[in-house]
Amino acid sequence: MLHIVACIKQVPDTKIIKMNPKTNTMDRASAPAILNPYDAHAVEEAVRLKKRYGGTVSVLTMGPPPAVKAIKKCIEIGADAGYMISDRAFAGADTLATSYALTKAIEKISKIKPVDLIICGKMTIDGDTGQVGPGIARRLDMPPLTSVNKVKEINVKEGYAVVHRKLEDGYEVIQSTMPCLMSVEKEINEVPYSSMSNMLKAARYQPIIWAVADLEDVDRPQLGLKGSPTIVSKVWAPTKPSGGTMLEGDAAQQSQQLLNILLEKKELFAVKGGSGVEF
């Protein structure tokens, strides 16, 4: 019986977040808080593995009290239990301090029920780093398997997993001992429309919430802002369109100018693997 922990985060929907042009700060109120879209796929994969191999799925998040909503969303997807660590001491954490705090929570969860597998989304849409998952794996001394786009096999008895890791030009098939940590790509699955029974379960669900004091062997200086090596020194807004440049001339001249603009962004058209174009 597998015990899978999915690490998730509530994030502002960065697709619609608005900037305050004067202060260059984000108007968080303008964007609803949602479950990080990559994490939905992580939870879904955990639920699928549970169905395939039997077991339970716990989700874990770190965040302020309203982040309970994100946990409920995971229950809708099919998770069995939700844990949240919430404390002022966690505030201002970068990826290093975040992976430390989550690791401490996973250690506590493991005491309730040993963890076989940890699944994270590829990255969060507000942090865009993808560093927390591998960080947790290192701290727990598990092999980190990033960019996973397929879980081919889990052998519970012999304790190994076989996954596909997405590469720029394909994928590699990796076998890893368990327990291990996977961070998954969106393409790994489609998150289906949740069943009504899961919706009702989620509506009633209350996660377990822990403060720092509830965790064990915590080295406080490693938490939150204090435990974060990186700091943001400056933010500015990238240029926004405001009635752009018109490209003049005849059709040939216009398309030539357009081509030059595209070539400035040629990295987007890079052929993965560099072995010729196959459009």
Binding site: S195, M196, L200
Partner: peptide, 30 residues
């Protein structure tokens, strides 16, 4: 109890009486 993101497709009517709702979710009759 609050359930979001769910569309009620129709009322379930039995013997001329509304007895519940059919939602668009799997196992969605209530």
């Amino acid at each position: 109890l609050l359930v979001n993101e769910t569309v009620v497709l129709e009322c379930i009517v039995e013997n001329g009486k509304v007895v519940g709702v059919r939602t668009d979710r799997p196992d969605g009759d209530l």
